[in-house]
Each structure stands twice: as structure tokens, then as C-alpha cells.
Design a protein around this nucleic acid. Structure first.
Lengths: 194, 194
DNA sequence: TCCTCCATGTAGACACTGTCTACTCAGCTC
DNA sequence: GAGCTGAGTAGACAGTGTCTACATGGAGGA
């Protein structure tokens, strides 16, 4: 009963989140969401003028969930920055593989109003965390932390994407991807001490 | 006049390739392709039973073009394997950024019949080239070349994707991505000699 | 109490999509 | 010439996102 009278706007997002995580991006038609929310197909228009804006709101929920998952994994943040970076990468990949539909939606720029709904802003905090951890871990001299963070992110994103697409070895699980992340980390930070 | 009477099947693919490179994935509706080919909307069905199969054929053309571009960049293949790997990465990124629509289509697994049309096979030769170059360049001991190749590919793919999405620094051009590729390469091969 | 207004949602239209099926029709073989 | 077959046409169908005209119910003011 946590959704009794939360307002149609919130309910539409809720229905959309559930739909995309259970049935994937294809199921996210405007009319289907309205149907499952128990309203007519014209109702969502009152809150989301266009289909893309509704999808963007759903995707933003996904970015929030990813952020929560990552900060949960990082804990109190007192661990070695380098260790935190691998933890973050692992958490990122786990999220992507556990919520494939949502993750796919989050990066389907053709389905999202990238500029309107503050989607960029939703993904930025995570980026800043990486930048912070990288600078605290001590980058090689002359390496821009923002560029390095982008490279790390791109690597994790590519791994998640190709893994989901089935292009990586089918036997390659999330655990086996960890050394790959570590290797890239090493490339930017220098060899691991000790 | 290179398309005078090449048969409808070939012409549909040709029209599709031009359409996706000029107007993006969204423009690739079955009816629009048929329209531009000058036939009725039912005609493609004779050669491609479903929309996805036509799109897959178009994407396969993209993989062929990517392969051609890469082998052209590699030249006679007598250069240092390590240098060839960076050349390959650069060519890959150049292709992705120059043909965004096509590149997007090539990895939209929801639009492709990944299993039917030998799409996996179309992308495999490139993968094998990377594996070959990596083993000739001398991997660190205990590193599976196929895993390393997957990691490299994932990195390039992620860079291309995030770059196209605008998530990387807008000022970051294809040239600036090169050190990122080199860093990852270094992570798998060990530091550059000399 | 009655009236008005307005936010919320309904219902139908429109153009478009992919798929399916019935049909035309030229060109070929027997 | 008769019949068949491959290639393409044309229309229907269910589904989509968007737009617009319409109900309706509840709050605020006289």
C-alpha cells in the first residue's frame, strides 16, 4: 500500500521503473505505462508533455539507484582510495548486470531528453566521486583527473555493454571482470604499492 | 549509376546504409526504406521476412566497412604489433565517431537478429586480429589474450559510446582519446620499452 | 445555497509503424 | 495458348505518440 494515493505523476514513474526492470526497454510504451497505472492513455500528458520526458524521469530514478548502490558499497569512505575505486567499479558493474533494462535505458540517449530533465546532473555526482578518489589516490603526473575518470567510466561502461550484449566470453562473469578494471586503474595510477 | 538494376535486395541495403549514415537510426523504418527505394511497403518482405533482418543486413555492411577501414589503417602489417594496436584503436574510434548512426545500429542488439544473420561472425575477424596482435606484442604472463582483447575492445567501445553521448568533456577529441587507449594497452602489455 | 472556475482525467481522431494476406501481372515453360 | 511461378502492389489490422475537444468533480466566492 505504499502507492495508494501517491499522485499520478509518482505512480507513473513507479510503474515505469518496475516495467523496465522486469520486461526491458521495449515494454516502456506510453500507453502501456498508462494502462498499468490504471489511467487512460492521455493522462500522462498532464505531467509529462512527451513520452521522452516520462522515460527521462524513469531513467533519473535509475541514476539515483545506482548512486545509492555505489555509496552503500563505499561505506564510510575511510578505506584506501585505490581500494575504494575497485569497489566502486565492481558495484557499478554489478548494478549494470543486475538491472539490465534500467541500465540500458539510462544510456539510450535517443530515448531521453538529455538536456531537459537534468539527466546529466543526475550522473554527475558519481563522476565527481571518481575524480575525487583518483586525485586522492595520486595520479601519475600530468594526467588530468577528469580525463582519467572518463577513461575509467568508459571502460566500465564498455565492459557492461559488451557483457550484456554477449560479446565477451560467455564464461566471463562479474568476478572475472575485476582484474580488467584493476589493470586499467593501474594504468592511470602506476603499479600497486607493496 | 552504380545502383541501376542491382536487384531490390541489394538496393534496400544500399538505401538503408545511406539513410542510417545521414539521418541516424531513427530514420530506418521499414516503410521509409521501401519508399526511398521506390517500392511499396510490402516489397521488402520478399527478401527480408522481418524488419530486424533488414536492419541486421545493414549493420553487417557496417561491420564490413569497419573491418575494411581497420585493415586499411594497419597497412601491410609489418609494423610493431604494439604500434599496430594503437593504430587499430585509433581507426576504430575514428570510424565510430565518423559514422555515428551506423555505429549505433551495429550495437543496438534490440534492433538486430544477433544470431540469425551471422552478425557475431561479422565482428569476429576484428576480434581475432586484436587477439593476434596482443599475443605477438607479448602479454604479461598469465593473461588470457582473449580476455585482454575483450577488455581493449570494451574500452574503445565505451570511449566511443560516452563520447557520442556527450558525457566526456566536449573538448575531448579523437586525438585526445589516444593516450587513454595507450594507457590501457600498457596495463596489459607492461610498460613500453625504450 | 448556488455558481463559477479550474485542475484532472477521458475519449476519439490523426498519422505513422510492422506484419499479414489477398491480389495483380509479367514472363516463362510445357 | 494454358498454366504456373516469382515479384511487387494494395489494403487491412493492431499498435504507437501526439493532439484536441470534452466530461467531471471539488474548491472558493457571492
Amino acid at each position: 500500500m505504499h502507492e495508494e494515493d501517491a499522485g499520478l505523476r509518482a505512480r507513473l514513474i513507479e510503474v515505469g521503473v518496475e516495467l523496465v526492470t522486469r520486461e526491458g526497454t521495449q515494454a516502456l510504451s506510453l500507453r502501456e505505462i498508462a494502462r498499468r497505472a490504471g489511467v487512460s492513455h492521455g493522462a500522462p500528458r498532464r505531467y509529462f508533455p512527451t513520452h521522452l520526458e516520462l522515460l527521462s524521469a524513469i531513467a533519473r530514478e535509475g541514476f539515483a539507484a545506482l548512486g545509492a548502490e555505489v555509496t552503500r558499497a563505499l561505506g564510510d569512505g575511510r578505506a584506501d582510495p585505490r581500494a575504494q575505486l575497485t569497489t566502486l567499479g565492481q558495484a557499478y558493474l554489478d548494478f549494470a548486470l543486475a538491472n539490465r533494462g534500467m541500465y540500458e535505458l539510462m544510456f539510450r540517449h535517443d530515448l531521453l531528453e538529455s538536456n531537459h530533465l537534468g539527466l546529466r546532473e543526475a550522473s554527475l555526482p558519481l563522476f565527481d566521486v571518481v575524480v575525487d578518489l583518483l586525485t586522492r589516490a595520486g595520479l601519475r603526473p600530468g594526467v588530468d583527473p577528469r580525463i582519467a575518470a572518463g577513461a575509467l567510466w568508459a571502460n566500465a561502461h564498455g565492459l557492461a555493454q559488451l557483457w550484456a550484449w554477449g560479446s565477451l566470453q560467455p564464461t566471463t562473469g562479474s568476478a572475472e571482470l575485476e582484474p580488467l578494471l584493476r589493470a586499467v586503474l593501474e594504468a592511470h595510477l602506476g603499479p600497486e604499492p607493496q
